[in-house]
Design a protein around this nucleic acid. Structure first.
Lengths: 339, 339
DNA sequence: CTGAAAGCGCTTACAG
DNA sequence: CTGAAAGCGCTTACAG
């Protein structure tokens, strides 16, 4: 890969020469802090005009190298394949720009090694701050950042080294489970436990959601068997396989389900279609996470929509304020019925 | 926002001092090209070990500033809210990393002003190359890049200044329309024109898809009225409004539809539910773009899945080869039936 | 008030 | 073969 035209780019020295002044003056004018320097308005205008004519663009590598802070903010994110992370990334970018920060984002595909590599790369690019979203090992990332004197914040999954902003997974799961239980009872006239599918048993969010799931059952006096909690991973295939395995073992599956993420739901729906298991009557579904098409999939699908704007507000508040106490901020998600 | 610990980061000079050698030697060892310098293996190992111990990280801002090429590659993308752009971004990142390039991505929300601003920002960060994905004004971006001597490639939407990689929209739309027409004829026993909803009449892809839509109708001898082509924009609300307006004006809508993107489909499905217009029988749907949940929405939804891996292969081939002839490479999409 | 000069942390051509 | 030195394009403390 080579530059097509090896153009020598215009620098502040070129501009200084053209304007008959110094590079310092040009820098001051173009960076906007020239009032302090009492540069004449006409010189300022001349420089601005020349910069435009010459197509001058600040070399950020040089600028950042010289400055105290880079004003670059990094984020790592697991995937771009669902609405939740998509909106996190999109809103993060917008909020960063609003604050005059340059966002750089890397998708790490839930791969621990890639996460570390990406974090190191961002530190090499001198990020002022790094947001670890849904990281498999947030504390490792926090340590790496800390060694470089860079602030870090966890998003979506909490860590123990730096502040975290996450959804209130317990409350969301509790309400979601209540609703699905109620929907089932209304339709089938009996209280029966739901199936929990998807996520990693070891991650904090899944653990909290399972806790909410169990609490809702306990409230209504329904026992939850161990075998009803399939924390098989997020990937569609994993959810699909877990359903198949369970059906083979148990025979009949519950008439209501808590699916832990739209990603897993993809596999669940595929299995339902292919197996024909629910051919007579579709199960009542609750899904942690939101997707507009999932909302159209059935008549009584309940979904938990995580409150991304509030979560990012909290993240930037931590960043802006410089707070670094080890708090975990839990943002209530929104549970909505659709259909 | 401030760094929590104003740590002075380790530089090659620190390492040189610790190792009792020069910064040049450290640089040569750490950048991997030290065989040419005949540095002793043991010195190399010592330096490597020290770097590790000290948590040394290369300052890319300094490195890039000094080097000929930055090895940074930029991409602008309209949105992160659908599978198509999501997979483009995810695969682009992976392919860039494979080639030792550092990807930076900005989402411009189909906003022409933001696109230009983002392109300029990327040039300031010294990208070697910029990929304009689905840009509203690709030629403007190409001009800005060209002025800075930076290569550009268009993706998804073509431009006239630099090479473009796009889907074969005509062929995809032709096949999609044929299938939906056939599905309708099979179920309703009569040939009738479909409705086209979504996209911008002015953009190349939509124009090509409309052309394919018309061609498929022409093949089978069905006339397409002007009023049946609603290129109302991509946003769900726009599609929803266009449907409502048409229903109010015409009364009865066609029993088959070509929906131009999953984004627009969201609005179409919403209108269908709310209006109850198709309460007796769902229309046959074809959707340009693919989404796993859309596939589950009905029994005969046809979808066009754009071939992202092939498209990105073509993009990187252009970049790697340094080709800059103004070709437009059209990648055949995959039309798949689901349900 | 304003410009010359130092220096950010690297890479690499060049002198020894 | 190897290190000292120049220089990438900025920003800013400092001398005039």
């Amino acid at each position: 890969m080579k530059r097509s035209i090896p153009t020598k780019r215009t620098t502040i020295y070129d501009l200084a020469e053209l304007a008959g002044t110094s590079a310092s003056a040009v820098s001051a004018v173009l960076s906007g802090n020239w009032k302090k320097r009492r540069i004449s308005v006409q010189l300022a205008e001349k420089i601005t005009r020349l910069a435009e004519e010459q197509g001058y663009a600040l070399n950020m590598q040089a600028s950042v190298l010289r400055r105290e802070r880079s004003k670059i903010i990094g984020m790592i994110v697991p995937k771009y394949d669902n609405r939740y992370f998509g909106s996190i990334v999109e809103q993060f970018e917008a909020m960063a720009r609003e604050r005059g920060l340059f966002p750089i984002i890397t998708c790490t595909r839930r791969d621990p090694a890639l996460e570390i590599e990406a974090a190191r790369a961002m530190l090499s690019y001198q990020v002022d701050c790094l947001i670890a979203t849904g990281a498999t090992d947030p504390d490792r990332i926090a340590d790496i950042c800390s060694a470089a004197g860079v602030r870090a914040v966890n998003l979506d999954l909490p860590g123990s080294r730096v502040p975290s902003v996450i959804s209130d997974n317990f409350a969301g799961a509790l309400e979601l489970t209540r609703r699905v239980l109620a929907n089932c009872e209304r339709e089938f006239g009996e209280k029966a436990p739901l199936l929990f599918v998807g996520g990693r048993g070891t991650d904090h969010n899944t653990a909290e959601r399972v806790r909410g799931f169990r609490a809702a059952h306990a409230e209504t006096g329904v026992a939850v068997d161990e075998t009803l909690v399939l924390t098989c991973g997020y990937a569609p295939e994993k959810a699909e396989n877990a359903m198949r395995a369970m059906a083979e073992k148990v025979g009949t599956l519950p008439r209501g389900m808590f699916v832990n993420s739209t990603i897993s739901l993809e596999g669940v729906m595929r299995w339902i279609r292919r197996s024909g298991h629910y051919a007579d009557r579709m199960p009542h579904l609750g899904c942690f996470d939101w997707d507009p098409f999932v909302a159209m999939l059935g008549d009584h699908i309940e979904m938990v929509r995580q409150d991304v704007p509030k979560m990012l507000d909290a993240v930037f508040e931590i960043i802006d304020s410089g707070a670094s106490d080890l708090k975990v901020i839990q943002i209530p998600p929104i549970v909505e019925q659709t259909g």
